[in-house]
Design a protein around this nucleic acid. Structure first.
Length: 562
RNA sequence: GCGCCCUUAGCUCAACUGGAUAGAGUGUCUGACUACGGAUCAGAAGGUUGAGGGUUCGAAUCCUUCAGGGCGCGCCA
């Protein structure tokens, strides 16, 4: 599709006697909203000033003088020139390219030789895996796939929250009210109960907070009892997280959590000291950032224990040394924007210019009744519960619609999980989303299962056709197939935009449109048999290849039957 | 109080980053050949883009004021 824009821009530039460069024209060319306005449009307003004529008359004059073999015709419509692409040629080219490249279609090379580290998921041990963690996991994972498709080498880091005052609190809570057998039976549930109880009682009894701080300090000092408890909690939690990651089909290259940086923090603190950045303030150690219009970053607490900023500094340094990243992306909720800016600023002050290569990718929160879900008060929706429920529904649905399907359980998982992932990724990542189980459990309309269903149906046709077209000789011309082909042709560009914007929803939206166009096509055209059967089958196969690859980028499976 | 973000159909969201008649999904109502899989398709209804002002050929989009909401703002992460 970009090819046509280029061609037309060159042609326009030439006929205008180079009053505008092809590049300038290219940025102006747009895709018309209405099909009767053709495939590409050029608004003539910019020319009005240059040529001192009305845009309407410019459009009229230009339209008649244009001529290019890739285009069927050019039409003036008010101040616009509309271009109509030669469909037969374009459908053939596009379909054949997809059939030839298959799952490679849409790849780019601009990331070749460069490395990106991803900070994603990063759940807190001691807290259950919530819907909020789902966002970081799923968005981060999708962007990392998209980056790979653009040629980058990616390193997925799950920076587990396995260190910090919350462990002191958890240890204190366990020592007060804990029951070993109960924790063994249901680790996450029980630990979470202890955690919320701690926060409830701490509001009445400030003594508790002190106890929590005390135990964290002990943990940092290497107290064996504290350490053993911490280790136990950590293992149990990780096992539970891994169940979820398996379901979500997410993998990591590093599970180095915050605790990994314990022995690397003192070095950071001394470095800050040596560089004269550290200051005592109200008993704590801080780096002042007034010149950046930011509040000071806290490096050490009054009692000498470290804070998350300290650990984030240590981990950033480690990642740079270890992975030599060209870009370091942090997929973290937007409520941490300030913290992230502080960390970056401190690194800059330390003289590390690569701090500019660190990028926060914020996303909106999942709200409940318009409010943030608070872990501390126990008001969270647990991802595992939601997944369980939705897989059950998918299973039920398959039983009803496709009773003889084998491996129902596996497909049900793919469909259910696909619904959850897609529901998250279809929204622009920065918007807050209101949590609605009802909405998430839907399998109709703009949903993951809709895309999967479209894919399965396409596969079904190919099975019946008993041939797998790998090249077609003739193109197609009808409206429904043309609309579909245009969308398929834009797919590579979509990938590029999705990467640049670090926005998986771009891919999700494009897939939905493709599926919609295919279903429309399918409903109005007999694919098997008849004239142009081979081209139509080719288009079908091209479509399912793109849907499958697009879903893969989003982390969603594409079953051939469902 | 200060800073950042948000407000589009009943609901959930789009709109190629300033372009033609603001579009989908869902919900409501109505239809689809004994169908290449009905988790689909077609149609109807639904809007002063939170309010006012400004910038220009042109504004949901940029600037400004106001209203409503969210998040953050030194010992949580």
């Amino acid at each position: 599709m970009e090819y046509y824009i280029q061609q037309w821009a060159q042609l326009l530039s030439k006929t205008l006697g180079e009053a505008l460069s092809p590049e300038e024209i290219m940025t102006k060319i747009e895709i018309p909203k209405f099909t009767q306005h053709g495939d590409l449009a050029f608004p003539c307003f910019v020319l009005a000033k240059l040529l001192k004529q009305s845009p309407q008359s410019i459009a009229e004059q230009l339209a008649v003088s244009l001529n290019h073999k890739a285009f069927k015709k050019f039409e003036a419509k008010g101040p616009y020139i509309n271009a109509f692409i030669n469909r037969k040629e374009a459908t053939k080219e596009t379909i054949n390219r997809i059939l030839y490249e298959q799952e490679k279609y849409g790849s780019h090379t601009f990331g070749k030789g460069k490395t990106i580290t991803f900070d994603l998921s990063s759940p807190n041990i001691a807290k259950p895996f919530s819907m909020g963690h789902l966002r970081s996991t799923v968005i981060g994972s999708a962007i990392s796939h998209i980056a790979e498709k653009c040629g980058y080498q990616v390193i997925r880091i799950n920076y587990i929250g396995d260190w910090g005052t919350q462990f002191g609190k958890l240890i204190a809570a366990y020592k007060r009210w804990g029951d070993e057998a109960a924790v063994k039976r249901d680790p996450i549930g029980e630990l979470f109960k202890l955690y919320t109880r701690f926060h409830e009682e701490a509001t009445l009894d400030p003594q508790l907070d002190q106890e929590g701080r005390f135990w964290f300090k002990e943990l940092e000092l290497g107290n064996p009892e504290a350490h053993a408890l911490w280790e136990w909690f950590r293992e149990e939690s990780l096992a539970a997280f891994n169940r979820i990651y398996t379901l979500l089909n997410v993998t990591f290259d590093s599970m180095n959590g915050e605790s990994f940086y314990n022995d690397k923090m003192e070095a950071v603190v001394t470095e800050l000291q040596n560089k004269g950045l550290l200051e005592a303030s109200e008993g704590a150690m801080v780096v002042r950032l007034e010149d950046q219009d930011l509040p000071p970053a806290l490096i050490k607490k009054q009692d000498g224990a470290t804070l998350y900023a300290t650990r984030d500094l240590a981990s950033a340094l480690y990642r740079k040394q270890h992975y030599h990243f060209d870009l370091s992306l942090y997929v973290v909720g937007h409520e941490q924007t300030l913290h992230f800016n502080q960390v970056k600023s401190v690194l800059s002050k330390m003289g590390y210019s690569w701090a500019d290569d660190m990028e926060h990718i914020p996303f909106g929160m999942i709200l409940k009744d318009g409010k943030k879900m608070s872990t501390r008060k126990g008001k969270v929706v647990l991802l595992e519960q939601v997944l369980k429920e939705i897989i059950e529904r998918a299973d039920h649905s398959i039983k009803e619609k496709n009773p003889e399907l084998e491996a129902r359980r596996i497909i049900a998982e793919q469909v259910g999980v696909g619904a959850v992932i897609y529901h998250d990724l279809k929204h622009y990542r920065r918007n807050d989303v209101e949590f609605s189980l009802e909405e998430m459990l839907k399998f109709e309309g703009n949903t993951g299962p809709y895309l999967q269903y479209t894919h399965a149906r396409g596969c079904s046709i190919l099975r019946k056709a008993k041939v797998k077209p790998s090249v077609i000789e003739d193109g197609l011309e009808d409206d429904p197939s043309w609309e579909l082909v245009k969308l398929l042709a834009w797919f590579p560009h979509t990938i590029e935009v999705a990467f640049e914007e670090r926005d998986p929803s771009t891919v999700a939206k494009s897939l939905f449109k493709i599926a919609q166009a295919f279903n429309h096509y399918y409903a109005h055209t007999r694919i098997l048999g008849g004239a142009e059967s081979k081209a139509k089958l080719g288009l079908t196969r091209a479509t399912i290849l793109v849907i499958k690859e697009g879903l893969r980028l989003l982390g969603i499976q594409a079953p051939v039957e469902m």
